[in-house]
């Protein structure tokens, strides 16, 4: 990982909403159409890639999000994982999947910025500029959605009740961060 400086410098707290960037954590994009793929991922991460749309699987260490029928995103729950541990995990995936032609493993740790949202009004905030219907997403822990927030592509992961992680591309993160904070003032 290159460990770029973050564009997001501070945590923010509003009434009923808390927002902060969580970093550094490892994020890995997985793509495959092969049958053996699921088994191999299960062996390495001890979680199976979800096949049902808009869902995720996970354990204490990692989350595995469904992005498309042949694409997933892994991210770590652990901010304190050492760089060596992260690289070892990536290498294991790379050796078992990319090298054996079972799919593609891409480290996207510095590509996505993860912002954590907590509070009762997080869905009110996002709905201010998002075409997605949160009714079902809100209720189901582990739900995943890819959509637009203020015209910026995002991945949303329902982590707990009234808590979600939002992934945004690094180059769009500052713009979205400014919009989020501007809008949160009026909720």
């Amino acid at each position: 990982m290159l460990n770029f400086n973050s564009t997001i410098k501070q945590k923010k707290t509003y009434s009923d909403i808390k927002i902060e960037e969580i970093e550094p954590i490892i994020k890995i994009n997985l793509r495959s159409k092969k049958r053996e793929f699921s088994k191999k991922i299960g062996k390495i991460l001890s979680i199976l890639p979800p096949t049902e749309a808009n869902t995720s699987s996970g354990n204490e260490d990692y989350n595995l999000l469904w992005l498309s029928p042949d694409e997933w995103l892994v991210y770590s729950n652990n901010k304190n994982q050492s760089l060596k541990e992260q690289i070892d995990m990536e290498d294991k995936l790379f050796d078992e999947i990319s090298k054996l032609n079972q799919g593609a493993v891409t480290n996207v740790s510095d590509h996505w910025v993860m912002i954590n949202f907590k509070g009762h009004k997080i869905y009110d905030l996002l709905s201010k500029s998002c075409p997605f219907n949160f009714n079902e997403f809100k209720r189901k822990k582990g739900s995943v959605a890819q959509t637009l927030v203020n015209h910026v592509d995002v991945i949303l992961h329902n982590k707990y009740d009234n808590e979600l992680n939002l992934f945004v591309r690094r180059s769009f993160s500052e713009d979205l961060w400014l919009w989020i904070n501007d809008s949160a003032r009026f909720i």
């Binding site: 808009n54 075409p131 997605f132 219907n133 959509t147 637009l148």
Partner: peptide
């Protein structure tokens, strides 16, 4: 056919 019902602006 993969994600379900979404707004046209996503397409």
């Amino acid at each position: 056919p993969y994600c379900g019902e979404r707004d046209q602006s996503e397409f």
